[in-house]
């Protein structure tokens, strides 16, 4: 019960302080947005509407889900899988900062999932630095997260605040015509989530994780669609080339569905729908190996920018 109470209070305090941070930075943020226009966005017409792009970015599933799947395999936490934060000061452009912010954000989800609160602080410092440079640092309540990270009783709150901070940053970027930065953030997160899954599968083959790597083909198509909007910029063009290499390997993955009889049950006041259909993901060992290699290449490119 104590844990629950602490969680409740921590979330409320965090919410309040986040609100105050947002309010105090509100004018500054608006000013910054005008000072640094989203030039790519303004100069070139988008191939897809802003609304459609928002939908797509929303679609890209949370790195928390991949981290949860990884943990469910029983493979222990591995610090070596995580991106080094040593080069964070060398990330000099919005492009580099946003991609790597996504990488570190995903790593934070992995750390949270395994309750590695000790390692969270160095990851947090890098995240805070990049978020500040991208002028979205006010959505990240570093002090509260630091306080929670030093108290293992507050893992639920830590996870909630970390994930909601990233959601709020992403929402703010898109609302303020900075969807190019948002698309990089989600790309970095997706690549890192895939990278972590690939490393775990290499270490300990697991059918569920293998399937999730395979069905990421669905998200990959969306990701490419949003990145291509900005490929008039040479940095984006290079990134698109790298993601297209991944997509090429995914061409050999087939996904089919066997229909099933749906059922509805009520569990503890919750209406639960189960479709009972069966999704078959066909991915050969050779294709999996090629996908893993292409993901590793893309990730290496990003962290060495």
């Amino acid at each position: 019960m104590n844990r629950k109470i602490t969680t409740v209070l921590a979330i409320i305090i965090a919410g309040g302080s986040l609100l105050m941070n947002c309010q105090s930075d509100g004018n500054k943020s608006k000013k910054d947005d005008f000072a640094i226009p989203d030039s790519i966005f303004k100069d070139k017409p988008l191939m897809i509407s802003k609304e459609a792009m928002n939908d797509i970015i929303d679609n890209i599933s949370s790195p928390v889900e991949m981290a949860a799947l990884i943990k469910s395999t029983g493979v222990p936490f591995n610090q070596k899988f995580l991106a080094s934060t040593k080069n964070v000061d060398n990330l000099s452009t919005d492009f580099k900062q946003a991609l790597n912010l996504g990488i570190y954000g995903c790593d934070l989800g992995y750390l949270n999932m395994y309750e590695k609160t000790g390692s969270i602080l160095s990851s947090m410092q890098a995240i805070k630095k990049l978020a500040d440079q991208l002028r979205i640092g006010h959505f990240f309540d570093f002090n509260t997260i630091k306080r929670l990270a030093t108290n293992n009783e507050n893992i639920d709150s830590l996870m909630y605040i970390s994930v909601s901070s990233f959601n709020n940053m992403d929402e703010y970027l898109r609302e303020n015509n900075r969807s190019d930065i948002s698309s990089l953030l989600v790309t970095g997160m997706w690549i890192e989530g895939m990278y972590l899954a690939c490393q775990v599968v290499k270490e300990k083959p697991n059918e569920t994780l293998r399937e999730r790597i395979g069905d990421s083909k669905i998200v990959l198509a969306d990701l490419l669609l949003i990145l291509k909007n900005y490929k008039s910029n040479s940095s984006f063009a290079n990134l698109v080339k790298e993601i297209e290499k991944i997509k090429k390997e995914y061409d050999n993955v087939t996904i089919s569905v066997i229909p099933g009889e749906p059922e509805m049950v009520e569990v503890d006041g919750m209406l639960m729908f189960k479709s009972n259909e069966q999704q078959i993901i066909d991915i050969s060992d050779e294709t999996l190996a090629k996908i893993i290699a292409s993901i590793e290449n893309a990730r290496t490119m990003i962290i060495n920018l």
Partner: peptide, 19 residues
């Protein structure tokens, strides 16, 4: 719910990755 009342929460057991 069909009787006009609201469920506290709804659940979905996902069997197929997709939109």
């Amino acid at each position: 719910k069909p009787d006009g009342s609201f469920a506290e929460a709804v659940g979905f057991s996902c069997q197929k990755t997709g939109m």
